[in-house]
Design a protein around this nucleic acid. Structure first.
Length: 407
DNA sequence: TCTGGGGTCCTAGGACCC
DNA sequence: TCTGGGGTCCTAGGACCC
């Protein structure tokens, strides 16, 4: 029995590529998706023309503007990207049911089980690449390897728009000279520590005993030890329900006004509730996060005996948690967020069933109205207050852009 | 030039129980 | 008055990924 074959597929500069496809007049120009230059935020994606100026995803928008003022800055249309993503995964599932959605634009396919169907896996992987590019109109990079880490590193090598395969016998040569930051799990902090030890290439990592990595990075260190050697037994997970769902907002300017903050909290609770209904999930844990003007984060969470889904219950808990944070807080807030976790499929029947049922029906009625007239069509008085200060954006209607809120 | 939004997973300390 | 060890649950915080 031969080993596994994993194909990793990654759409190049996804959001920017969709924009170019739909707006041909943008082609050839540098594009940054994520927000307008003066807004608080970072680039979610930029195309290769923008990268030539040193812009990269994750870079603050203002900095991107400094480097490349002639770039086209777009806020982005996430529902549109979602639709492209769905088409992408539908196509991939024609080849195997073992498809993992690593993100909107990134997938792992395990072809191992389908061996009888395909004479030559490399040829199949190339065919997948060609079909995605033809049918979606987006360039993709494809990597093939005997496990997930090697397939992913192969894709990195293949970018932009290429194809690369790592075979069993070539693993050592392939890995030796790659930079340590190529390994997922070695982020900025870990990099600093390793470089201080004179470790810059994956090959350098081979000299470090497992115990040393464990000491430095805990369980993640053991993962790094194995990945540096191209060892990875993680399965391709075709479906797993979400573990948490959250909604958060960074304000265009820091806010201290309590009423305004509560209005945002209500709005986030409302959107979180909608997301839970869409997934048919109930939350045992509600968490509120704040980010202070000096960028420190603080969270408070509460474990609930009865899981919740409706906006009223979420907001009730969130408001209490928020007050606990706010009362000890000496700075204006940059961000508030609400998160639901410890999610369960269906709520078990409780003594309060009649009450819950009413809130549930209210939520469903809300959904129907909004489906027809947009999210902003029906809001609580508290949210309405937010809208009075900062009008909801009409054309999208769904995501409140704090950016458009201030004058 | 300040630093998004939506996730995953791990760690550490204190409470509590036996 | 002095006082263990282990297990589990809960909470807060943080690194990391796309």
């Amino acid at each position: 029995m031969k080993g596994r074959t994993i194909v990793h597929v990654d759409i190049d500069a996804f959001f920017a590529a969709v924009e170019e496809l739909l707006h041909p007049e943008l082609r050839g120009k540098p594009i940054v998706v994520g927000g307008l230059p003066h807004e608080r935020g970072v680039a979610a994606t930029c195309n290769y023309e923008a990268r030539r100026y040193g812009v990269h995803s994750g870079m603050p928008l203002r900095q991107a503007y400094e480097l490349c003022p002639q770039a086209v800055f777009l806020r982005g249309n996430y529902q549109l990207y979602q639709a492209f993503s769905e088409k992408f995964f539908r196509l991939l599932r024609e080849y195997t049911p073992d498809v993992e959605e690593a993100s909107l634009d990134e997938a792992y396919l395990e072809l191992t089980r389908c061996r009888p169907l395909y004479a030559d896996f490399s040829a199949t992987a190339r065919e997948i690449k060609a079909r995605v590019e033809r049918e979606l109109g987006l360039k993709v990079s494809v990597g093939v390897g005997p496990n997930k880490i090697l397939a992913k590193l192969a894709t990195k090598k293949a970018k932009p728009g290429g194809f690369f395969e790592v075979r069993e016998g070539e693993v050592e040569d392939f890995l030796r000279d790659l930079d340590i930051e190529a390994i997922p799990g070695i982020g900025p902090k870990a990099q600093v520590e390793l470089r201080l030890l004179g470790i810059n290439k994956i090959g350098d990592l081979w000299g470090l005993p497992k115990a040393a990595l464990r000491q430095l990075f805990g369980l993640n260190g053991e993962e790094i030890y194995l990945q540096a050697r191209g060892i990875d037994a993680r399965p391709v997970a075709s479906f797993s329900p979400p573990k948490s769902i959250s909604r958060e907002t960074t304000f265009l300017e820091d806010i201290w006004d309590k009423k305004l903050l509560l209005a945002h909290l209500a709005y986030l609770s409302d959107r979180l509730s909608l997301a839970l209904r869409e997934e048919n999930l109930y939350a045992h844990i509600i968490e509120v996060k704040i980010r202070l003007a000096d960028f420190r984060n603080e969270v408070k969470r509460r474990l609930l005996v009865t899981p919740v889904q409706d906006m009223t219950s979420i907001y009730r808990v969130a408001r209490e948690l928020f007050f606990e944070l706010y009362s000890s807080c000496r700075l204006a807030l940059r961000l508030v967020g609400v998160k639901a976790s410890d999610l369960v499929r269906a709520r078990s029947l409780s003594l309060f069933e009649p009450y819950c049922d009413r809130f549930e029906r209210l939520g469903q009625a809300l959904d129907r109205v909004r489906e027809k007239y947009g999210f902003g069509a029906i809001l609580t008085a508290r949210e309405r207050m937010l809208e009075a200060v900062y009008p909801l954006e009409k054309e999208r209607g769904f995501v409140l852009r704090t950016a458009s809120l201030t004058r």
